[in-house]
Design a protein around this nucleic acid. Structure first.
Lengths: 346, 346
DNA sequence: ACGATCAATAATAGCGCTACGATTTTTTCG
DNA sequence: CGAAAAAATCGTAGCGCTATTATTGATCGT
């Protein structure tokens, strides 16, 4: 009968210090109104808005996005999966995308696939458990299970940095074989006939392989000689130096070099310098990436400038449009192109 | 009285296709057991575990981390805020940390402060709304509001890439002034007496400034001449070339150059090559960062190799320990050190 | 002036999961 | 063999928020 006979007070849960109800109470409105204010400020009267703003300020209220996401069945997170952010290309895209998404209060969840489809699959699974607003993958090649996971999903799935294959949903990037073609045509236009492609990690990096293939195809079509010299490890200047030496050993009359990226290319340039090979007189060198050092080295490197930051911005735009209810009708393939920076190495 | 008089069926909510209850039903256990299995598999019997695993597999169940996080008042996300992932140093740390966290099924939420404390503050606010398992910031310098936000927080707050100031919670990194000191001592040991520090963006990059200050202090202490030549923009090889020319113009008898990072240093090296300045005979050059091209250039660059990936791994370890309930007692400062790579440019 | 119309606000019912105590089943051992 | 201890499982009550419907108050045309 008395208090002591009651069951012990029901167990308490952990909690957030300041909730929306606290704000509502202080602002003298209902929680619904606070929620509405946070999502659609224009639907709330000026007086209420002011009171709520003040209360939020005073209480230092931080909304709980998990509660919101749970109730709304979708979160303010965007998942992006790249091979590695150590790679300057993807770092560029990730950075520009994060900047663009921040304006819409969307957060970036980052994952690294390390060029491994199995890894990607696990990451996609983990990503989906956040009910993200969109999911961004690198490239068009994925495991069957990944495709299955993404098939039943209603959010935008955006594949970046590669065009030209069947895509899941939307694709933003450029054609890497066209890069190879552009480089080959450039070298041939410069009067080079004996070409070599220096490649790194091409068994894993599909896009490097595509550039190589396009290069070979265009060179052969123009009647030039074109060989490949490659190394299995990640591209670096050191490997570029090694590959250049190897190329000249195997093909002494080479007069034009294309590289799978600028790391390889500057490595080749460094090697030429040590070997007293005149660039571009004796040997023309073209890279890919237009990395930070490429314009400054000796001689300045002719290279392909991809559109890494544009890719990120376009992806963010697509996601924004989708959140605003626009149908992503025709813009399902966005070709962000690339440009050839002609400098003195060719 | 009849059905038509009833109120319309209560409004439906959006929902997830497969929930934990579905799994429980198929596995013939209660939802609690499924939840337990997912969080502490060892606490569930072998028979039940198998049934649940099978059900998860069959239904292709993906847990809803937002629901879980809401109930548990903490999510499986870790927020990391760096100036920019375009910067190879931070890319390294972010990448190694993501790899380490993935093993514990923790996700990385990434934000870019762009060296702006105001931006950082907003990002911290956004980060907190995910109730992350930990929050990682770059450097020890933050706005008062940021400090206030983080003061009331029970999760680990880890500050990386800087030691030597008052920290909020835990700090992992190294002393940048010691880097400057090490470089100065190295140059002096090589017989250099007229030193110049080439710096970029030092008004924003506190850590570059610290390296510079340490350098000047040590040089002066050793009785050497030491000047600073700087540029306000982000470090690049081009700026490095410009700064080198400027340094020689202002201080023609300079015989030793320290750079705020390797981009500047290779730019300086490129400029020396163009100006026919013998390195290291006439001029010694030392960088910071040991970037991918630093060992391959001409001459190979003497530089400081920081511990970016170790910083990421240690941060992940700290977070793991905290999740496992260990008190982060004494290990609140982790000095990951740096090493001087002596190559031929000095 | 009076219902109709519209804008602003409030009440309600979960979203899917976890923590906790309670309950059931199994094991241990005097 | 039976009671106590340990292991395994379950039931309950929210976590903090949003979406939907319901309600209130203000505006308006005739």
């Amino acid at each position: 009968m008395d208090d002591r006979m009651r069951k012990p007070p029901r167990n308490r849960r952990k909690m957030q210090s300041v909730t929306m109800s606290d704000v509502a109470e202080l602002a003298n409105v209902s929680p619904s109104t606070v929620s509405l204010f946070l999502r659609k400020p224009e639907a709330v009267s000026g007086t209420a808005s002011q009171a709520i703003s003040r209360a939020i300020e005073k209480l230092n209220y931080v909304p709980n996005l998990m509660a919101g996401g749970l109730a709304a069945a979708s979160s303010r997170a965007v998942s992006i999966l790249v091979p590695s952010v150590r790679n300057a290309f993807f770092a560029e895209t990730v950075a520009s995308m994060q900047t663009a998404l921040k304006k819409q209060r969307l957060q970036l969840i980052l994952g690294h696939t390390e060029y491994d489809e199995q890894e990607e699959e696990e990451l996609v699974r983990m990503a989906l458990s956040w009910a993200p607003a969109a999911i961004v993958l690198t490239g068009l090649s994925h495991s069957p299970a990944t495709r299955r996971l993404l098939a039943n999903v209603t959010i935008p799935v955006i594949e970046i940095w590669e065009l030209g294959g069947p895509q899941i949903d939307a694709a933003i990037g450029f054609h890497h074989d066209q890069v190879g073609i552009a480089v080959a045509e450039h070298l041939i236009q410069q009067g080079r006939r004996n070409l070599v492609f220096l490649g790194a990690r091409m068994h894993q990096d599909r896009r490097a392989k595509q550039r190589c293939d396009g290069f070979l195809r265009a060179a052969h079509a123009a009647g030039a000689v074109a060989k490949v010299v490659e190394h299995p490890d990640t591209a670096s200047a050191e490997i570029g130096s090694m590959l250049l030496a190897e190329a000249l050993r195997l093909h002494p009359d080479t007069d034009g070099i294309a590289c799978s990226n600028d790391h390889i290319a500057v490595g080749a340039l460094f090697a030429c310098e040590r070997l007293k090979i005149a660039v571009p007189d004796r040997l023309a060198v073209v890279g890919f990436g237009d990395l930070s050092f490429s314009a400054a080295c000796n001689p300045p490197l002719t290279t392909i400038r991809p559109s890494g930051d544009l890719i990120g911005r376009e992806a963010a735009r697509l996601i924004e449009d989708h959140l605003n209810g626009e149908k992503l009708t025709e813009s399902r393939i966005i070709d962000t192109r690339f440009t050839l920076q002609h400098r003195r190495s060719s």
